[in-house]
Design a protein around this nucleic acid. Structure first.
Lengths: 204, 204
DNA sequence: GTAAAGGCGTATAGATGTGTACGATTTTGA
DNA sequence: TCAAAATCGTACACATCTATACGCCTTTAC
């Protein structure tokens, strides 16, 4: 199989895995079910991935790579930092509350070994947080915020942005938000964030 | 079996179920494994609960009842509302980041039907949120905060308090916090919260 | 063009889970 | 005390999953 065809096949299989997982949960996403859904042989799945855990590990990794690229693109834009922040808010909410991330987090919650969770953290929060700290530094230097520290600002920002939304998505009590809902939530978040970290704070 | 013995047995079985779930995940927590751990017969488990999902539904319900009672007790204390708030912070963090709640949320994340998640929300957030709104009202009347609305204050409060801590616990990348860590986080949360909603806000 | 490699579909052995059944033992209730 | 009910331990039929194997067919490499 040529490299590009093989890459395409891998991504098809991984999409199928996520789709089965979405419909039947991590438990129901057996290698057999995934193979059927992808019209692949389970022998191929075992040859390529070894076992179910490593299959999902691969998915986590490629998902993290995509997400990081999207964020980097937003961060590299030639815009004032407050516009970048707003843009990043929307992107992160779409990413974190979308079907893929939700499915992967569910898989991680189902995985008693903690390997999937570790991979998600390593490819996700651990990579993203420093970038947000940097962005906070840029905002501070632009006089937009005046937080106790950039790290503290980043932490508050993330808490206000995500809060328990992701968890509620994962346990299935919150539907995927529409673009409008995301925009509204971003407005609220930014209002609160600038109120909390704005430069016009008394007693800082 | 006398009622009190039966209640005790039920709670033993439910504890065993959570312990097996903690060690082997929702997938590994089969009725057989739970029965072995509880030294019960699987016939008894099926007679009492019907199936695995309903077993965990029962656990969710009894856990929610306990949690609500604890919160009510804190809320009913004869203290100024800001002391009640601080007390409630600690209690909620202990509750939400403790082994029981984490295990149940993992189970809900593994449950494709969404029933467990629904039960958790119904017994948890849906009940707790109005109480926090009420507490926010008391804080506002006491002149401690001046938020856009009590609901908004409650939402910001919850976001600042919990943020992504619960999710990180659930995917296994955050250990159970110590009492000291919880106290520190409560301090930070309250600082941020009063900064965000305090009465000395400009431009409210 | 042809041989090698690899995927597909199916088959398989072994392990495990679900839900039920049944005798032996214990507990309950009168 | 004694009969009824319930639990325990074990067994069972049935289904499913894991991981591997093999023949068939397509794709790749030379």
């Amino acid at each position: 199989m040529r490299t590009d065809r093989k890459d395409k096949r891998r991504s098809e299989i991984e999409s199928a895995a996520l789709e089965v997982m979405r419909q039947r949960g991590y438990e129901g996403a057996s290698m057999l079910n995934i193979a059927k859904a992808a019209k692949a042989s389970n022998e191929t799945l075992y040859r390529w991935y070894g076992d179910k855990q490593r299959l999902f590990l691969e998915i986590v990794k490629s998902n993290a790579a995509e997400a990081e690229a999207a964020l980097d693109k937003a961060l590299a834009a030639e815009l004032p930092p407050e516009d970048i922040l707003e843009h990043m808010c929307k992107q992160m909410l779409h990413l974190l509350l979308g079907e893929r991330a939700v499915a992967l987090n569910r898989a991680a919650a189902s995985d008693a070994s903690g390997q999937l969770g570790g991979a998600i953290a390593k490819g996700g929060r651990d990579r993203v947080f420093p970038k947000i700290v940097q962005l906070m530094g840029a905002l501070r230097e632009a006089g937009k915020i005046n937080p106790p520290s950039d790290e503290q600002a980043a932490q508050w920002f993330l808490q206000l942005l995500i809060g328990d939304l992701q968890l509620r998505r994962i346990i299935g009590t919150l539907p995927q938000p529409t673009r409008t809902q995301i925009a509204d939530h971003v407005d609220l978040t930014l209002t609160a964030f600038y109120r909390l970290c704005g430069p016009d704070q008394t007693g800082v």
